[in-house]
Simulated assay, not measured.
Amino acid sequence: MEDKSFELQPRFMSNEIVDSIIIKTFNHCISNNVKEFLFAFHGGEPLLQKPDFFKYFVNKCKSIFSNKVTIFFTIQTNGTLITKEIASLFNDLEIQIGISIDGIREINDENRLYKNNKSSFDDVLLGIKNAFDFKFHKNTLGILSVINLENNPLEFYDFLKEIKIKNFDLLFPYNSYDNLPKSYKVNDINHTPYADWLIKLFNIWYLDSNIDRPNIRMFNGFIECFFGGEYPNDLFGNYKNGLLVIETNGDIEAVDYLKACGQNFTKTDLNILKNEISDSINSELINLYYHSHNKLNSKCNQCNVKEICGGGNLVSRYSKTNGFDNASFLCSDFLKLILFIQNITYSNLPKDLLDENNIEISSFEKEHLIINSLSNKQYDKYLTSFKSIKS
């Protein structure tokens, strides 16, 4: 979108930066009693790096971390460069592969063409096939798709099963109030296109009784939250966001999707060569991102599902007028989707368990009316309909 800062950065990360990342991450883990840590290779396209980069990074980590901290590795790639050799290397290094693909050829080609405008679709499928030749990837490979409302949910789901995907997740487009999705109507209770699409997909997935039903992280994440668990990434939930970005030049920044808010938006004066990991919390933006599910707009604080929603992803709250002091422009979509999945989940529980935990089934219209009409004082008196069953 607006941010073009990548044009001024090195295309590749040097071993000096790598060494500093690994050593300072290890020191941070030891100082803060962190027992497990995940390194994610991201981009751009991280497979433009040579195989020796990944060998060096993983082996350096193993030598530094030893058995004191359990470390994991993952890579998010467009999949076009996953040769059998790369798949074999990542199998040996135990680097979990995530592949970005948005659906069938026509849908994927909307935003994932090569620079010469040729389709990348066949090469992505070949990359998936190459990865599936190895047991580690067969069990762990995941697909990540940006929601495209032109995608037929049933056709999309059948495609996932056809390519034998076990692990799958969905992303909302990284838009803000200043750059809304085409034809999107903010604050219109009757306009919830993303919720409507996801509810159709949820119903297909939920009613699929076959043993090969994929794990859809968004849906399972919401269900986990309803029983007191933690949402599995930074898009929802009420836990702290522990993700930090180190750019190719060593700059320490907040999560990369915030670049959609403006030029140099995520830039700080922090760099891994001169700063410690813990210095990052002094950055106003990084601090906000870290606490973003608890630092909510007043409208969000009136909402019964705020512990599940957490205000949604931070970029969807941003406007140049109010900064992040907004409810997400996707608020109605989030509310409708969460209530639908929650009601389906709770409706399958025994009535006495619901009564014992003071849980009632509510409606989207009722909750939307409460959020948008009651003052904070009135809302405090309103008996909450939603609470997690902690046992």
Rank of each mutant, 00 (worst) to 15 (best):
S209W: 02
I216Q: 07
Y257F: 13
N287A: 12
P193F: 00
D208V: 00
L296S: 07
G229K: 08
G228I: 00
D256F: 01
N264V: 00
F202A: 04
N210T: 14
N282L: 09
I277C: 06
D251R: 05
F226G: 01
I211W: 02
N264R: 11
S280I: 03
K299Y: 10
C261D: 14
S280G: 14
N294E: 09
F227Q: 04
T192I: 06
P214T: 01
G228R: 01
D196M: 02
S283I: 11
T266P: 13
P232W: 08
N215G: 03
Y194V: 05
L285G: 10
P214G: 05
K274M: 03
N238P: 04
Y290M: 08
N282I: 00
F202W: 05
P232I: 00
Y289S: 14
I216H: 09
P193S: 02
P214D: 06
L198Y: 00
I199W: 01
N287D: 14
F219P: 06
I246Q: 06
W197Q: 02
S278Y: 14
Y194L: 02
G242C: 09
I216Y: 04
L273V: 00
L198E: 03
I211Q: 13
S280A: 15
Y231N: 05
L270Q: 07
G242Q: 12
L273D: 02
N264Y: 10
K259H: 13
F202I: 03
S209R: 09
C261V: 13
S292N: 12
N264W: 02
T266N: 14
T248E: 00
G242M: 06
G262I: 07
G242W: 11
Y231A: 06
L235Q: 10
V255L: 13
H291A: 08
S278E: 14
A254C: 15
Y206C: 06
N210A: 07
G221H: 05
G242I: 04
N238H: 04
H291R: 12
S209N: 13
W197M: 04
Q263E: 15
H191L: 07
L285T: 10
G250F: 00
T266A: 08
H191E: 10
P193V: 00
N249Y: 01
K299G: 10
L207A: 07
N233R: 06
F236K: 01
F265H: 14
S209Q: 09
L288R: 14
N287M: 08
F227A: 01
C261R: 12
N297L: 03
I277K: 08
S292D: 09
S278P: 08
L201E: 06
W205K: 05
K200A: 05
L273R: 05
E253R: 15
Y289T: 12
Y239T: 10
K259M: 15
K274Q: 09
N238I: 00
G221R: 02
N297A: 11
R217D: 04
G262K: 11
